[in-house]
Amino acid sequence: MTPRPKLVSTGMAAAELGIDCVTLARWWRAGLVDPEFVTAGGHARWDVEKLRRELRERARRNEG
């Protein structure tokens, strides 16, 4: 059985990435990144490692 990822709030995920939480929320609204889970109240929960991978892959695609 694989361990469940640690899910964090938008503010915590943004802090881990060294960006502002408004930036991460804007990327989400623009469809550039997707949270792992969205609560019933509309709050995103992020797997930071998955988010880092998504951003690296996007940067690689944009380089070429």
Rank of each mutant, 00 (worst) to 15 (best):
E49K: 08
R29D: 11
L51S: 03
D34G: 11
S9N: 01
E16A: 09
A40F: 07
R53K: 14
R56D: 12
L24F: 12
V38A: 12
E63V: 04
T2V: 09
H43L: 02
P3T: 11
R60S: 05
P35S: 01
A13Q: 08
K50T: 13
C21M: 03
A44P: 13
R60I: 01
G31R: 13
A59F: 11
T2K: 13
M12Y: 02
L55T: 04
G64R: 09
G11H: 02
W46E: 08
A59I: 03
P5M: 00
A14T: 04
P3R: 12
V33T: 12
E49Y: 07
A14F: 02
T39I: 04
L7F: 13
A40Q: 08
E49Q: 11
T10N: 09
R53F: 13
R4H: 13
P3Y: 10
M12T: 03
E49N: 09
A13M: 08
A44I: 05
T39N: 04
A59K: 11
W27C: 06
P35M: 06
R61C: 06
W46S: 05
A40H: 08
E36Q: 14
L32Q: 15
M12P: 00
A40V: 09
V22F: 05
T23S: 07
L7C: 07
G18C: 01
E16T: 01
L24G: 04
L7G: 06
H43T: 02
R53S: 14
P35T: 01
H43G: 00
P5Y: 07
G31A: 11
R56I: 06
P3E: 13
M12V: 03
L32T: 11
E16S: 07
A40N: 08
R52E: 11
A25T: 10
L17A: 04
V38W: 14
A59G: 01
T23R: 10
P5H: 01
L51V: 00
E57W: 13
N62H: 08
L51I: 00
D20W: 03
E16G: 00
G18L: 01
P5W: 09
D47W: 14
L17H: 06
A13I: 06
V38M: 15
L51Q: 03
E54D: 15
S9P: 00
L17K: 07
R29K: 14
N62P: 00
L7K: 10
A30W: 11
R60C: 00
R45E: 10
R53T: 14
G41P: 00
A15K: 08
P5K: 00
L32K: 15
A40D: 12
V33L: 08
T23E: 06
K6H: 06
D20R: 07
A15Y: 02
L24H: 11
R58T: 13
E54C: 14
F37L: 15
R29I: 02
